[in-house]
Amino acid sequence: MSKRHSVKHKLDRRMGENIWGRAKSPVNKREYGPGQHGQRRKGKMSDFGVQLRAKQKLKGYYGDISEKQFRKVYDEASRLRGDTSENLIGLLERRLDAIIYRAKFVPTVFAARQFCNHGHVKVNGKRVNIPSYRVRPGDVVEIREKSRQLALVLEAVQSPERDVPDYLDVDHSKMTASFSRVPAFADVPYPVQMEPNLVVEFYSR
């Protein structure tokens, strides 16, 4: 299991953006970075810095997955036919924890990872507890019957903060989500601008 070593709100402040679009993000009140030097005026960022920032932001969005795991996804995306940046987003969106989060079964992507680890999720009727499990088009993800009345789930379903994207067919009454297709970058409802092309440039150096 990939462990998150930093506080998630620090990711927001480090990037200076509300990465997940959450109402409680500290960036909504303080746009400068954390620490005693956070308010100092920043100089112009180098090309490397811009690319690194884009990578850290995209990696952080999906639950701050480890560098090793993220690089592995990039390497696979670069081997596939077509545009590498589009392939990268498609592979990340196929993660089971990403599907659980997009379907609004849990409030955050971090909660989605823990939810999967604790065995609350089934894929095509079989229990899966690996957050990075890759869902295929046509697969049906569902919340186990015993877990459907958890306060976490009920709160997330009723939350107006996010909309379910159109590449998922979600039935909240049955707590199921069908993954209809691999989304293109333009289909993914990021609350902030993501730049996967800069991630490709970073790894292509």
Rank of each mutant, 00 (worst) to 15 (best):
Y101P: 05
L11N: 09
K55G: 15
I143M: 06
K126Y: 13
L52G: 13
E142N: 11
P160N: 12
L150T: 05
H5T: 06
Y62L: 03
N124D: 11
Y62P: 01
G90V: 03
L11G: 07
L96S: 08
M45V: 15
G60W: 04
E67G: 02
R144K: 03
D187C: 14
P183E: 07
R102P: 08
P191V: 00
L52T: 10
I99F: 04
G49W: 09
K10Q: 04
K59G: 08
R148P: 04
A112H: 10
M45I: 11
R14D: 01
Y190E: 04
R181Q: 07
P34V: 07
R162V: 02
H172M: 05
Q51A: 15
V199D: 14
N117E: 10
K68E: 00
K3M: 03
R162Y: 03
D166N: 10
Q39M: 13
D47S: 10
D64E: 00
E161S: 13
Y61E: 00
V128E: 06
R162T: 02
V123T: 10
V188Q: 04
P137Q: 11
R40I: 09
G82E: 05
A156W: 05
A177W: 10
E195Y: 09
F185V: 14
R134N: 09
D75K: 15
A23H: 01
I100V: 04
H5K: 07
D171A: 10
R205P: 14
N197E: 13
A151E: 08
A77I: 12
V7F: 01
P34A: 06
P183T: 13
E195K: 15
H120P: 10
V157G: 07
D163H: 11
V7K: 02
N18W: 03
V192K: 04
Q114N: 07
N18Y: 03
I89W: 04
R81C: 09
R148D: 02
